[in-house]
């Protein structure tokens, strides 16, 4: 039976939030990598009809889930500085959003 303190331990929430931020950042990073290099785009083409998007999304989802599982094992039942964790996750999300925005991507790749 869990103690009252454990019942409100926010570590699992922190892990979920941070993993989501990481997943979004990975998505943006992979999108830029695929757009910037034909070799990377070929590597990311897991399913030819969908093209590099298949690899970008699959890898980002796998990284997100792996980070979530690992974070959950590490922080489950613990109390973390949720404000700081969500702040980091939000910065990662913002970077991910920015990286998927084509004009920013083009700027980054010097197109």
């Amino acid at each position: 039976m869990s103690s009252p303190r454990e019942a409100v331990a926010n570590g699992a929430a922190g892990a979920a939030v941070l993993a989501a931020g990481l997943g979004c950042f990975a998505l943006g990073l992979l999108a830029v990598a695929g757009d910037g290099s034909k070799a990377v785009a070929r590597l990311l083409t897991f399913y030819r009809p969908t093209g590099p998007l298949s690899g970008v999304s699959t890898i980002a989802i796998l990284l997100w889930l792996a980070a979530w599982i690992a974070g959950n094992r590490l922080w489950r039942g613990k109390t973390v500085a949720i404000g700081k964790v969500s702040g980091v996750a939000f910065v990662l999300l913002a970077l991910g959003l920015l990286l998927t925005f084509p004009p920013f991507e083009d700027l980054l790749l010097g197109k």
Partner: peptide
């Protein structure tokens, strides 16, 4: 690309 973030989040 951006669409994938919505279900993830």
């Amino acid at each position: 690309h951006v669409a994938w973030m919505a279900p993830m989040l």
